[in-house]
Design a binder for these strands. Sequence first.
DNA 1: TCATCCACGGTTTTT
DNA 2: CCGTGGATGA
Length: 823
Amino acid sequence: MTFILGPDGAPSNPLLDGLNPQQREAVEYRGPALLILAGAGSGKTSVLTRRIAGLLSSQDAWPSQILAITFTNKAAAEMRDRVESLIGQAAEGMWISTFHSACVRILRREAEHFGFTKNFTIYDSADSRALIKRIIKDLEADAFGFTVSSVSGKISRLKNELNDVETYARNANFNDPAERVFAQIFRMYTSELQRANAFDFDDLIGQTVFLFRAFPQVAAIYQRRFRHILVDEYQDTNHAQYSLIRELTKPIDAHVAEALEAGEGYRSSQREPNGTIAGASLTVVGDSDQSIYAFRGADIRNIVEFERDYPRSKVILLEQNYRSTQNILSAANAVISNNFDRKDKKLFTTIGDGEKIVGFTGYSQHDEAQFIADEITTLHDGGLDYKDIAVFYRTNAQTRALEEIFIRSAIPYRVLGGTKFYERAEIKDVMAYLIAVANPADPMALRRIMNVPKRGIGPATEAALQLHADKHEQTLRDSLRQADQLGLGPKVTGAILGLAGLLDEVTLRVETAKVADILEAILKRTGYVELLRASRDPQDEARAENVEELLAQTKEFNTRNPDGTLLDFLTEVTLVAAADDLDDSSGTVSLMTLHTAKGLEFDTVFLTGVEEGLLPHQMSAGEPGGPAEERRLFYVGITRARRRLYLSLAMTRAQFGDVNVAMPSRYLQEIPTELIDWRQSPGSANSRGGTQPRALNARRDSIGSGFNSGFSSGTGSGAGRAASFDRGGGSGYGYSSGPSATALARAARNAEKKTEWTNRVTGTVRDNGDLTLAVGDRVKHDDFGEGTVKSVTANGPKSIAEVQFDEAGRKRLLVKIAPIEKL
DNA sequence: TCATCCACGGTTTTT
DNA sequence: CCGTGGATGA
């Protein structure tokens, strides 16, 4: 480590350079437990990275004593690179990974302690749903109202709370037949997983905790090894993850420590005078305002109660934001301050106001997408790189309209997450071969490939094989080899034995061969690609290409990991996170959900679909804490933007094939009016024409009066309305440190505002009654001028006309509410 | 055993 | 609008 003189003449340490006092303290503090409350954009990643580098360079820790948990694999890889470049050398043995990856690593080593083997399969959601489906069918549990999604959701929730079948059965009310059936499903699901030598996503965490609790001497290996544990995004840990960290940071009992150190004479003892080994030092970083994973069991209490759980802990607040302009921050602050049960914190920046937030309301999601595309083109022409632009949305379904328009506008883009390559049927087929080869006990993979490509092995034959397996208490794979004992036809028997031979042959090479070689052998023996190529279904050509793309990926994996095994490959594929796809050098606009956006940042952000029902999402309305979590999601989206933020919505949104009228999100009016420059406000987009009060006809070019004034002016005499819009002068976004009474008053006021907002906007929607248009009709549109109807789809309220306007181009309009007149 | 057809239903967010 | 899944007929 080299020390140079800083500007103040004091010795300057590159690890601390450019840090504010709080950040410095977070890097340098040494103690048993540290909680860093880091607001959005406050440099927490940098702090965490430097803290690790500091632990290494000060020799407080060896690399192998560090376990850092990040939210994505990509974040893990970046953190590793940055630590290594900070200390100027490779840090071998350091574990930086996600919760799931770390647990897989532990489980692969220790699986044999409790009835699994190291080549276990990881069931993704689709696999576990398929298994649940079978079980529901077998038990005829649908008669009790159980569906795949209700069961998988319930099992997942139970596992996240660390309830195993036995615990559940003990507490269940067996007078309730539904509960009895559920216990049966849960039990069967658990035993099927065990029999298949498989874990589901939740098991990876839960079973690791179980392993540690059941085998203290195994836990002790990791408790002793990891002296410094660091967890990022702590606000999104669930109970199982919390417990895992709890287990890992426990001190080691004297007798366990003694057993552990016995026969290790060469190594100096780590034991305290009383014979125990002290618990590891724990650092967690989080921001309760960014907790957005309650639906998968994330528990905000983990961060709120940290000081209680770890008594001798230190808390550091990082409040200065280094990412965004003041306008963006003010909007974010104003929005989040409406969540009244939060710890107040003051985010500030010295960057300056920056540009105003741009608002836009499209007539449809296509109109919205077109605006975004046009804006991106303008920004790109102005010198902004595509890779610095991101488009966020609440649901994956929203990508369709965006993609359509982006393709037409020749904007290079990339969708993170979304429809995954690995979810395609042909890829799952080929992957099932790899899984079957890696884990011969797994019947799910085997069932999938039994008749792919077609071998004449149908459901009847499969059932006979399964029956044989159950009767002899062996795996399905074993039964395959004994197909000649089942008295099946010679053709089918031959096909089964052929498959068994193929799998057995390839399985022999699993330990030694490269993934790509294994896959190539399978493809060659099955002729899968050739069969696809020979098919007359035109889509099969694309499927063949996908399979070859997978082969290319295995080769790429082998180059990246020369020692990588088939198991490593399968693990990597199963545990990729949506954000892992982000490629900084790709030169494309990034499209992703708000959830995926967490932890990322972009120069320019488009936050789309800011509508009631979408953000907040319909589904969240009933859930306790739902709307508040949706608000945090909106907050997360806003705070990803460095310099430019666009908020957009559509007045109508097509869903499930029909068109619905959308209303602006309640969160929009929580942002002070003066921060948003409405290019087209909801008021001007939906309210014109003679049927509405004149005051609502705000012109789209009268920017200042666009939005809030647009809806607040035609209102009658709403009591308390003046108070509702009293958020000028900064009071709406400065953080009040007042007691909860004011917070409650604020919340009450908000509730009132929401109602008013809802009523207002519903009332402003134009209604053309039963106006019907025919191809060739001339129409006049308030914004687009005159045009000719080119096509009309459907009748009645859902009727959509495509109109070629003389000057504004071709537009699709919802006839019922578009501001049009028939000429 | 397999291919094709129609009816149905479902959609929040993710490892 | 889509894909899934059950039923039907060859």
